[in-house]
């Protein structure tokens, strides 16, 4: 049922409405079903996928340890990204020109170089500064010992993420009507109260969806630290197939875990979005339904799109 059909009520006294046939829709749908069935059969019957091996390694302790480290990396790096990104966004929007320029340069630098390069850079940081003193007399730390592969991974991913989060948060703050800030100021709220109580909670509606994408992206990007021999999910799988040569089954094991984790994270994102949408009429949902109806998926849309 599309919108055009339901709009045309039958004239009074006419017996029956003959709906359009949509032959093309049936035909293309049928072709797609056949193609998918063929592909699934091929996957199920090709022994080289090694499904029994996949089942055997899915809960292997080494794999599970990799899953744990992947999750830790994702959350620690996102935490760094969000905190530092907020600071950078506020700096960028501040009245202080030095802070503005610094934030601008940071984003430009960390967004302008590949994260893989940054990771390898941090891994080799000791080549640049073998001894770290942080300018404090008497402090002498061996950089090689301090910057472990895991720390190099956390620094590389977290600092890179901060640049992206800064832009997302800046966009969210920028989306707030200036009238909101004026009303809050006129009531006697101080600047930081206006930011915390009025601006950020509203900006969250704009910030959460892209941040959810970033979390899912981080989960997958964390596989890059396998090049630093950090035992996260991909590297754990690689270690196993390096000794038993079962490359494909173990890559499938890793992929299945990534799929499960991204599905769980997406569910969490939906709950967060609902929380921060409070007080807003469901404009966005209405728009989504309109698009669906327009694409001929009207049976998914509720009636009465305003």
């Amino acid at each position: 049922m599309t919108a055009t059909e339901t709009c045309e009520a039958p004239p009074a006294g006419v017996a029956r409405v003959v709906r359009q046939r949509h032959l093309g829709r049936w035909l293309s749908g049928g072709v797609m079903v056949v193609l998918v069935a063929l592909a699934l059969r091929s996957v199920a019957t090709n022994d080289r996928f090694g499904w029994p091996l996949v089942a055997g390694y899915l809960f292997d302790p080494q794999i599970l340890e990799g899953v744990r480290l992947t999750l830790v990396l994702t959350f620690v790096c996102m935490a760094i990204g969000i905190v530092l990104g907020t600071v950078l966004a506020v700096m960028r929007l501040s009245a202080n020109p030095v802070a503005q320029a610094l934030a601008f340069a940071y984003v430009g630098f960390f967004r302008g170089t590949p994260v893989l390069v940054q990771l390898i850079f941090w891994f080799n940081f000791a080549a640049l500064y073998p001894h770290l003193s942080f300018g404090i007399p008497g402090v002498d730390i061996d950089a090689n010992a301090l910057i472990s592969p895991v720390l190099a991974g956390v620094l590389g991913l977290g600092l890179h993420e901060a640049a992206y989060m800064a832009e997302i948060i800046r966009g969210g703050i920028g989306s707030i009507d200036v009238g909101q800030i004026e009303a809050a100021r006129a009531l006697g709220l101080r600047k930081n109260q206006v930011l915390r109580r009025i601006v950020l909670p509203q900006a969250m509606r704009v910030i959460v969806p892209p941040t959810g994408n970033e979390v899912v992206g981080m989960l997958k990007t964390s596989s890059l630290v396998s090049v630093l021999a950090v035992g996260e999910l991909l590297y754990s799988a690689q270690l196993i197939y390096a000794s038993n040569y079962q490359t494909i089954p173990l890559l499938i094991v890793a992929s299945l875990w990534y799929l499960v984790l991204t599905a769980v994270l997406s569910a969490g994102q939906m709950r967060l979005e609902r929380h921060f949408a409070r007080g807003s009429v469901e404009v966005r949902t209405a728009a989504a339904e309109w698009v669906r109806g327009w694409l001929g998926l009207g049976h998914l849309a509720r009636r009465g799109v305003r």
Binding site: Q180, A183, P201, G279, S280
Partner: peptide
């Protein structure tokens, strides 16, 4: 334009 806080 009222400028009520829509999230409250």
């Amino acid at each position: 334009h009222f400028n009520l806080f829509p999230h409250m």
